[in-house]
Simulated scan of single mutants.
Amino acid sequence: MKINVGNLDRVLRIVAGLVLIALAATGTVGWWGWLGVVPLATGLFRSCPAYSLLGTNTCPVKK
């Protein structure tokens, strides 16, 4: 997997994923809260398939 998720993007994805999962687990939101697994996984693995398809990369360029 190619790394294409930068540090800020990674932190935001992990936090958003954890919040959605916590809200779903407590019953505050419906089943769709479990979709928080997607941003959590992309943040942990630092790779986003949608970014690959769109040619986007939020990682800083290494010289």
Score class of each variant (00 low, 15 high):
Lys63Arg: 03
Ala50Met: 15
Asn57Gln: 10
Arg13Ile: 02
Asn57Gly: 07
Arg10Ser: 02
Val19Met: 03
Thr58Pro: 01
Val29Glu: 11
Trp34Met: 10
Pro49Lys: 05
Gly33Cys: 12
Lys2Ala: 14
Arg13Ala: 04
Cys59Tyr: 02
Gly27Leu: 06
Val61Ala: 12
Leu35Tyr: 13
Ser47Val: 08
Val38Asn: 07
Thr42Glu: 15
Met1Ala: 13
Ser52Asp: 14
Pro49Ala: 12
Lys2Val: 14
Pro39Ile: 05
Ala50Arg: 08
Lys63Gln: 02
Asp9Thr: 11
Leu54Ile: 14
Val5Gln: 03
Leu12Gln: 01
Leu40Asp: 04
Ala41Glu: 01
Gly33Glu: 10
Asn4Lys: 05
Val19Gln: 00
Thr42Ser: 03
Leu54Glu: 12
Met1Phe: 09
Met1Asn: 11
Ala41Cys: 06
Ile3Lys: 13
Cys48Arg: 05
Leu8Ser: 07
Ala50Val: 15
Val15Asp: 05
Arg46Gln: 15
Leu20Cys: 13
Leu40Phe: 10
Tyr51Ser: 13
Arg46Val: 09
Leu8Val: 10
Leu12Gly: 04
Ser47Lys: 05
Ile14Ser: 01
Ile21Ser: 02
Leu8Glu: 05
Trp34Glu: 07
Pro49Ile: 13
Thr26Trp: 13
Val11Pro: 00
Ile3Ala: 11
Gly43Ser: 07
Val38Arg: 07
Val5Cys: 04
Val38Gly: 06
Met1Ile: 07
